[in-house]
Design a protein around this nucleic acid. Structure first.
Length: 175
DNA sequence: TAAGTGATCTCT
DNA sequence: GAGATCACTTAA
């Protein structure tokens, strides 16, 4: 997902942003994953088909945006932790040709709570497919990402999961 | 480093 | 219905 373009449609407006940071939550055994404590109404989308959103609310403040991955009935999802804005192209340009990354500091949205807030995402998207129809989807950025540009680190805020799972370097950042 | 914040889940 | 928990952010 790193380097892909996340697109959010709000009314007539489309916001485009490159995904720059993610975290993986993988299977029932991953103690840091919501799935480890069994299927509930909230986390049910994790067991669903890949390509659907899983959105939930934490700490009384923040919506977290995840994309469900993996086969059906296997709970896995990717948390989107950071994006970098792209200038909106004029409609006369072709989408693929006119995207330019905003490289200055203002173009960076860092932290999953901020990402959701910036894109005006809430729980109503949870369980819905990533598609133009739902107003939130992913497009190919047209850029090949070399593995050397990806930095792996331990996931954030999951110390409760114990050393084995909190220590997994499943946080990925595009450099 | 700590507090705020409220949905969700577990236990009565 | 009460109590605990929490994939975070912000201000000190």
């Amino acid at each position: 997902m790193l380097g892909k373009v996340l697109v959010r449609r709000i009314g007539r407006k489309e916001i485009r942003a490159v995904i720059t940071e993610t975290e993986a939550y993988h299977g029932l055994k991953d103690k840091a994953s919501h799935a480890a404590r069994g299927k509930t109404k909230r986390n049910a989308p994790m067991w669903g088909a890949a390509g659907h959103w899983y959105v939930y609310f934490v700490y009384g403040n923040h919506w977290m945006l995840n994309l469900v991955t993996g086969p059906e009935e296997y709970p896995a999802a990717i948390l989107i932790r950071g994006i970098s804005k792209i200038k909106n192209q004029k409609s006369k340009f072709r989408r693929s040709a006119s995207q330019t990354l905003i490289k200055n500091k203002d173009g960076v949205v860092s932290g999953p709570g901020r990402v959701a807030k910036f894109l005006k995402i809430d729980g109503s998207l949870s369980g819905r497919p990533a598609s133009r129809k739902t107003g939130l989807w992913i497009e190919d950025g047209g850029e090949k990402i070399k593995p050397s540009r990806i930095k792996a680190a331990a996931r954030v805020g999951v110390n409760y999961a114990g050393k084995e799972w909190a220590g997994k370097k499943w946080r990925f950042k595009l450099l």
